[in-house]
């Protein structure tokens, strides 16, 4: 047990140089981007003088090295700086928007896993059957339909034409107040507050964007499940298992699926972190106040602190996720341990 704890802390220690690199690169890159935040934020009627005054007020007149150390110093105290466009600490902005994105992304992933994994298994087992073809069609559609298109299409059909879906107005219709904040996830918070009406309202708001994103993430997961299952099914150990007279259920789930799970979990991790940053289009279409649209707006406005905060948050999340995936490997396959090299 203690050796495992040691191994985990070693892994965490390994992430420090990664984070350091991220901090430096994000700092340099944001400033290397064309665009002058002082000119942008000085407003429509600003002249050279007021731009200069704005630059001073934003602290951008200092040398870059000094700016960097100020930034790192603040960061070590937990202060990510202040976004110029929202006028609030970046940490507050992220804390508000990250749960929105996570809630959407996780819902989409759960949804797509529920469909993609059984579909992939089934397609592999019944190779060439109609299930396999259905799987192929879904995968192709999921990959080739851009999310904003699926989103607009779903809104058109289910909201505009049929009127089944609620107004695509973000996380909650204006009829409801957001539940008291505990986790930032509306579904969880509303349950904690025992407010079923808000729970169902946020669930309904989540449905369309969740399906949109789910369709998109379904493809790689189904594809990977099918491929991994095919490899596992044609392996020697499975033939041995079958020859030993084990039941088909035990063979399929106990041996084939468990072995196929490794690449699936890896894909899942990659899809998750990719989608979290890339679902900005879905966020825009459904007016979802998520982290993707925040980052894009910050980038357009050259809002340095906000961009850096976003990159850092994503890096942290990514590192954490990788750790989680590595740990789950050990659970899935006991041969992979955390013994020191």
């Amino acid at each position: 047990m203690s050796s495992q704890a040691k191994a985990i802390s070693l892994r965490i220690a390994q992430t420090i140089p990664v984070l350091l690199g991220v901090v430096i690169i994000s700092f340099v890159l944001t400033r290397a981007l064309p665009g002058d935040p002082a000119a942008y934020f000085a407003g429509v009627m600003a002249d050279a003088n007021s731009i200069e005054a704005t630059r001073e007020a934003l602290g951008l007149d200092k040398p870059m090295i000094q700016q960097f150390f100020l930034y790192v110093g603040d960061m070590l105290q937990g202060d990510l700086g202040r976004s110029i466009s929202t006028g609030r600490p970046v940490a507050t902005d992220l804390a508000e928007r990250l749960p929105a994105s996570l809630e959407l992304t996780l819902t989409a992933l759960v949804l797509s896993c529920l469909i993609a994994v059984p579909l992939g298994i089934w397609a592999a087992v019944r190779q060439g059957s109609w299930v396999d073809h259905l799987c192929r069609v879904l995968v192709t559609a999921g990959v080739s339909l851009p999310t904003f298109f699926t989103g607009v299409l779903l809104i058109y059909v289910f909201y505009y034409l049929l009127g089944w879906a609620p107004s695509p107005l973000g996380r909650l219709d204006f009829l409801y107040l957001s539940p008291p904040r505990v986790t930032g996830f509306y579904l969880i918070d509303s349950l904690l507050a025992r407010d079923m009406e808000v729970f169902f309202a946020s669930l309904r708001q989540l449905a369309l964007p969740g399906i949109t994103l789910g369709l998109f993430t379904l493809a790689p997961i189904a594809r990977m499940t099918r491929a991994a299952m095919l490899t596992a099914l044609s392996s020697d150990y499975l033939r041995t298992a079958r020859a030993a007279g084990l039941g088909p259920r035990k063979v399929l789930y106990g041996y084939a699926f468990r072995n196929a799970l490794l690449p699936v979990v890896t894909t899942l991790g990659m899809v998750f972190s990719f989608v979290l940053g890339a679902n900005v289009l879905v966020e825009k279409v459904f007016a979802w106040p998520g982290i993707g649209s925040y980052a894009v707006e910050a980038l357009v406005a050259s809002d340095y602190a906000a961009v850096q905060g976003f990159v850092l948050a994503m890096a942290l999340l990514f590192v954490f996720l990788n750790l989680l995936i590595d740990l789950s490997y050990a659970l899935i396959d006991p041969r992979i341990g955390f013994t020191e090299k």
Partner: peptide
């Protein structure tokens, strides 16, 4: 008066046409 921010043009159009806003 509730001012709601909806970035997507298509979504805004669907909302006003439906009369929900």
């Amino acid at each position: 008066v509730i001012v709601r921010e909806v970035p997507s043009q298509a979504t805004r159009r669907a909302l006003i046409e439906r009369g929900d806003v």
